[in-house]
Simulated scan of single mutants.
Amino acid sequence: MRKGQNTVHKISSLQAARGLAALAVIAFHSLFINAKYIPGATWLPDIFVFGQTGVDLFFVISGFVMVLASANKFGVRGEIFNFLKGRAIRIYPVYWVYFFAVLLVFMLKPGMVNSSQAGEVNLLHSFLLLPDANLPLVLVAWSLIHEVWFYLVFAFILLLPQRWVPLAFAAWLCSVALVSVLYSGPVSPYLRTVKHEFSIEFILGALAGIVYLKAISEPSKWRLPTGTVALFGICLIAYAVISGLIDGSDVIQSISLSRAFIVGGGYTLLLLALALQESKSQWAVPGFLKSLGDMSYSLYLSHILTLSVCGRIWTALGNAEGGIVASVLFWAISLPVVIIVGYLSYKLIERPLNKYLSRGLKVKRISQPVVN
């Protein structure tokens, strides 16, 4: 799989998908921000509810890229430590910047943070990204808790010989699916994370990564019709939209198996088709999508905070009236601000931190999607 290992950084479609996933999540959260700060009608379309699946896409991308980044490393002594060290550097330092920023606000004005759960939060669990009955201090970090779990399981799979890896992922997928069907009793926060159907989407992405590496290393044996694969993926996503499978309900406790397989499967097939087509034609995505992908983690961490600040400033300036005109004006100002803040966060915080820590701890930097 040497060829696959060398192409990890060149799959621009995965980078573009990161940016689109971040935009989708922003679109979903904009519905709630609009309802909170601009009463009355809104120009934001109902389809923005489907933006919630940006998280599903992030998980699929994460599984896909983890396999690509670990090609030829399965069963190699010492790789588990290098992998976990690299993932910790990628996830925690930037997240902690936002954690301490929100913590400062929480200490000065507790009512402004986590008001939906009366300010109840476990600071230690939030800091370490551990499962908890309450949401973390930085609300969007609930998805990072799943990422940490995925990385821990993946690290153990790294111990296995390469030939056993597909079987390990298949066993993990079957275990999650069976528990989802058979167990309906009470769950602790840790069990909720372990059994959550989001794991299926990460696994589907990982299996797609295995197929991709096989297809580019043995093209004569793995001739996949990328057009058909992409069409099937589009059909699954279209079905999810038409059937109302995504209704904006809470996904933190659990999601349906149908969502995991239909939405996660649709995104998996689309990513696989795009990556395979890119390996054949060497096409590149537009620069602005690549830039969005580069800053997607910072964008994900910062967007709710930025939108909340915009909303409070909007209200403080006396713009209490709602309606279409107010909504259009608010978003014409706020959305560019969200992108600018995400970009500055990436340039001034995320990228310098990653470079400094990677050099200091001698970790190879991997351009990879994190649920950001």
Rank of each mutant, 00 (worst) to 15 (best):
S116P: 11
V140K: 00
G78V: 14
V371K: 01
T42W: 01
A17E: 02
R351W: 10
A71V: 12
L329F: 05
I47G: 05
F198A: 08
L348N: 07
W164Y: 09
R359E: 08
L20N: 03
Q277K: 02
K355G: 11
L108Q: 06
K214I: 11
T268S: 06
F156P: 04
I26A: 09
L299F: 02
S115Q: 10
V338G: 06
R365D: 12
F81I: 13
W283C: 06
H303N: 03
A275D: 01
I203P: 05
F32S: 11
G293K: 00
L14N: 02
A320D: 07
G78M: 13
A35R: 13
F99K: 06
S258V: 13
Y37M: 12
P186M: 08
I11G: 00
K347C: 13
I61Y: 04
G323N: 07
R2F: 09
F330G: 14
M295Q: 05
Y183D: 14
D132Y: 01
A88F: 11
L274R: 01
I313D: 01
Y151A: 12
G63S: 01
L84A: 10
S296C: 13
P161M: 08
K36A: 15
A273N: 01
E321R: 05
T306W: 03
A206H: 07
C174V: 15
K347L: 14
S220Y: 08
P131E: 06
L292S: 03
L257G: 14
D46I: 10
Q5V: 08
N82G: 10
R77V: 14
K195F: 15
D46K: 07
V94S: 10
L270F: 05
F330R: 12
L130P: 03
L130V: 15
S243V: 06
A320S: 07
P286R: 03
Q162P: 11
V25N: 04
I366Y: 10
R2D: 09
A177H: 05
L159G: 14
V176T: 15
E197F: 04
Q15D: 11
I33E: 03
G293V: 04
Y346N: 07
I200S: 13
F81V: 14
V121D: 03
M107A: 14
H303D: 03
V194C: 15
G40M: 06
V25Q: 00
M107D: 12
F156C: 10
P336Y: 06
I200T: 15
L353G: 10
R223L: 08
